[in-house]
Design a protein around this nucleic acid. Structure first.
Lengths: 182, 182
DNA sequence: GCTCACATGTAATAAGTTACATGATTTC
DNA sequence: GAAATCATGTAACTTATTACATGTGAGC
């Protein structure tokens, strides 16, 4: 149901094609909603249309692929707001990296260093993207939400930078001695 | 594949039944791995057994339901470590609450206040549970990982406490005036 | 000439969630 | 006596992911 809400959320703000909705997924103010691909978005838009929550208008530009521009209807807006008005489920936060860190002592030190590097780079990218979008944006609720994201990502990046050496050491120490299961 | 890794991770540390694995899901050092239910765990354990990564021993205590205690095999340990030794995928963080905050201006102020209250309570609970587990635990990698979680949850809770009034005001202001779409 | 961005979609597969089905023991 | 905890599992359903399939135009 999360792709559904995401599509409605985007269309609530402005008309868009499936392609555009896909591009927005996981970025800016939608960073923490979903990262749906085409395979979820296109079928979802068709379903929303059949339910009357959105309408489509096709645009045939000469010598360009035809576009389907989706708009949310009043019924769609109402449905969306109603769906939001239930106490939101709690966050799902899943981190394959934290599974790696949990078993750092059984993995090699080089690998751990590379995994940390990759994570640091990723967090930095996400952060700069979010910061850029946040300064551009003038809607107060969007700004509040993006600042929330910036705050938590910053905390995450700072922890990683401050404490990465400790994790790297755990991996180094373990690989230099015979290992025993915990 | 995440339930699979989670089961192997738990069994890497100690033997357990499906029921126990379920209880550990989403708690302590496994807080950020998965929150799988019985419906994922039991079939997963059967599959791991058929692959030879774990073994089962049944325990028939008189006047108690029979238990199936799973143990990881050497092949299982090896497979697990090998699966971890690929650069971890990036985190997935999905927050239904942040979708609500994004549209705060269209929702009623009371509802926003309740949603924030619920989130604050949830974060506080998660944090105290994690802190309790972190002090009990003496494995350095587990501790590093839990402190990571504590750091980000703390940042999240602090943001919410400091800035909740701004979000509440957005909802209040909007409901007192005629609304226009963004 | 090649690759990237634009643009839409389907089909097969994998995975997870929910509800169902059962039953003993312990705690209030 | 009721509710919660321990304990296992299946079946149906929903959802998301991946790969496939196709085609144009712009920039290098």
């Amino acid at each position: 149901m999360s792709t559904r809400k995401f599509c409605l959320a985007v269309l609530f703000c402005h008309d868009a094609t499936g392609y555009e909705i896909r591009r927005i997924a996981g970025e800016g103010r939608f960073a923490f909603i979903t990262e749906a691909g085409y395979g979820s978005i296109y079928p979802c838009l068709s379903k929303l249309e059949s339910e009357g929550l959105v309408t489509v208008s096709e645009e045939f530009a000469p010598s360009k692929p035809p576009k389907k521009i989706y708009s949310i209807t009043n019924i769609g807006k109402e449905a969306f707001v109603n769906e939001l008005m239930e106490l939101p489920a709690h966050d799902t936060f899943r981190s394959p990296f934290l599974l790696v860190s949990l078993f750092a002592q059984y993995l090699d030190a080089d690998f751990i260093a590379r995994a940390i590097d990759a994570r640091e780079a990723y967090l930095r990218d996400k952060l700069s993207e979010l910061r850029a979008q946040a300064t551009e944006c003038c809607n107060p609720a969007s700004q509040w939400t993006m600042e929330y994201g910036i705050t938590t990502l910053t905390a995450s990046l700072e922890y990683l930078q401050k404490h990465r050496s400790r994790l790297e050491e755990i991996a180094r120490e373990a690989s230099s001695q015979p290992q025993a299961a915990e």
